[in-house]
Design a protein around this nucleic acid. Structure first.
Lengths: 221, 221
DNA sequence: CGCCTTGGTTAGAGGCTCTAACGGAAGTAT
DNA sequence: ATACTTCCGTTAGAGCCTCTAACCAAGGCG
């Protein structure tokens, strides 16, 4: 918070960038699938091309938004996994936090996990953040007592995972924990993404109840 | 195939509409997140606003594409569920067909299940198609001998599902079958959508293997 | 003080969606 | 066959967008 040693110019620059991003968020939150630099500038009272001093092009803005969203999601999930609790409770908390986060700001969730925006430029930093997010799950599952007693295919996949543990970021975990964290994640995403995108709309049941059931099933399986 | 009793004008119109949609598909397949009417017209050798004789606006085109994709997916899944086989084999076939379909044309999958395009106009017909797709799964699960021996939450959700069976389209099925079909679908979608969107890219494992494991787990759970 | 980096400006090219007004051609009725 | 109507194409243009080019004013620094 101490504005550590940056020149006033740099602080101003950072501030304007943040303001631009804030406007972009409100814009994407209110319907627009992708923010418009022009509209943002108009709202900020400055004229069009001024924004190009702060972001080289629209893709750079969007990439920044994606990374911010990703970081926020990771922080939220990490915060939800209070380290004192037993692993199963932690995982449930993470699951609840994930859905809450997604429902609170669906556009943010979709910006990360929806259709890759233009011709999808995979930001390299995103993988790092994703790993830190996975680490929360992996650690909880590693701590969990339940053995990896899945069906036969699980053993095959565990064997396949053997050499690919680099993407967890933290210390090596068993393949079983990796697999369980991964499938846990995909199951949560399956429900949440369909709900966010409105695919449960006409069906008339409570998505929250489905989610709770799915979380419980994923944790006892 | 007999061009049943439609006037030549109507046949011509249909033909041009199909040609437009074909161009739109190739365009969306090659990077563009959403097709451009202008570019399509240019490719077809006609000039801009002529397309507005065939589609009222771009959203109508996209909606048409979505519905076509949805129909094709439903047909593919139905075809994959050969009625002679035992239910578990049928479900596996559907799962395989789904992933194959998604990987063959990711843009199509994302057009249906990705970020809802602009301000998302939910087409009412989509729900019908979705129901027909679900019906395939529901019937297979209904035929499956395995009882709904899920965790405690499953019973709660089954009870909740009691009155909401209208969305299956076909004859009434047990709440357990509905629940299992629904969660089966969400689990498949969870893996496929993340793979399609490239979220497994940096992780260096085989998504196909993960998918196979997940399908097997979903069927034995 | 002079200089240079930086953040703003306007002009404008080129793209998009979509409307308006119009002309010709194809089908239809007389 | 002729007249009418409907339909499909055209161009013009408004209004949005991204992004580049050229220019200018002010702040920081030697």
């Amino acid at each position: 918070m101490a504005d550590n040693g940056r020149s006033p110019r740099e602080r101003y620059r950072e501030q304007v960038r943040d303001e631009i991003k804030a406007h972009a968020w409100t814009q994407v939150a209110t319907g627009a699938s992708a923010p418009s630099l022009n509209a943002i500038a108009k709202r900020m009272g400055i004229s069009g091309p001024a924004l190009y001093r702060y972001f080289r092009n629209r893709d750079e803005l969007i990439t920044d938004l994606v990374l911010d969203a990703y970081r926020d999601l990771a922080a939220t999930c990490r915060a939800a996994a209070a380290p004192g609790e037993p692993p199963r409770a932690r995982l449930t908390e993470v699951a609840v936090a994930l859905r809450r986060w997604a429902l609170a700001t669906p556009h943010r969730y979709l910006l990360i996990f929806g259709t890759p925006v233009p011709g999808y430029s995979a930001p390299p930093e995103a993988t790092t953040i994703a790993s830190s997010l996975m680490a929360v799950l992996v650690e909880a599952f590693a701590e969990s007592a339940t053995p990896a007693r899945g069906p036969g295919g699980a053993a095959i996949f565990d064997a396949h995972l053997g050499g690919h543990q680099k993407w967890t970021g933290s210390r090596p975990a068993t393949a079983g924990s990796l697999r369980r964290a991964l499938t846990f994640w995909t199951r949560l995403h399956g429900v949440v993404s369909l709900e966010i995108a409105g695919h449960f709309a006409g069906m008339g049941f409570d998505p929250g109840l489905l989610y709770a059931t799915e979380v419980e099933a994923a944790l006892t399986a």
